[in-house]
Amino acid sequence: MADIALRLPVADERPAVNSWIAPPLLILAALFFFPLALIVRQALTGDGDVLSIAKFASVFASREFHHALGNTLTIALAATAGCLVLGFVLSVLIAFTPFPGSRVIARMIDTFIALPTFLVALAFTFIYGSAGMLNESLKALLHLDLPPVDFLYSQWGVMLSEVTVYTPFVMRPLLAAFSLIEPAQIEVAASLGARPLRIVSRIILPAALPALVAGGSLCLLLTVNEFGIVLFIGAKDVITLPLLIYDKAIQQFDYTTACVIAVVNVALSIALYSLYRFVVAYFGSRRAGLV
């Protein structure tokens, strides 16, 4: 019918805005955007009234800031990569080789999302810590005096914890995307002689790509923002941006430096969030597994 339809100059009839939106918007403005604006002001004026970027310059020049920024990005990128690989493998196992109890496991992973993140970090100290289960087992087995496994109190410990905690965030959109693949498609491919790895690479992976990109960018955002895990692992040389903000504000009462770092951290997070929204909008929420 489009071929005969003539176009009339009619605007979208729905209102651009109405007054009902005011109360929640005002609450959010007062409790969230106003404090955020004050962080920026404090970062620019310090405790005085003069606008200056001097504080930014000195923070940007400091080694601890470089260190924290580097740690944050390295950990976030590595953990996200880990989540994507692990999430993809686990989702394929759940969706395409349904084993006894796989539904229960899928639901358990869903509830895992609601658990506090530091739970995993705390558990890892019992498992991989210097006096943990793994080291004690290896010491007993190999008759060693010193703990042979020592990675927990480093970037690796944080990464491993974050991979465990955030993999479900990749699996959720992936499983939703997989449920859109026709089982017949895989059966036909198999009947034509395609081996499992070929089916995964030719059919499943392309279908999963939007969900992987969406889940991955969400992971990147969450790992950049992660605080509890880093705090609980408590390694001296693994300081990330959120931890540095906490350290400056609460331990050293240096609010201005904390605000400068917070500005950087918030800007980074909002950029990653924009990336995430863009990816979801680009692929469409259905294909990105966020039906």
Binding site: V224, F227, V266
Partner: peptide
């Protein structure tokens, strides 16, 4: 999307 520590700092 904003890190929780920064939300806390803003409120402080």
């Amino acid at each position: 999307a904003v890190p929780s520590v920064s939300v806390g700092l803003g409120l402080l």
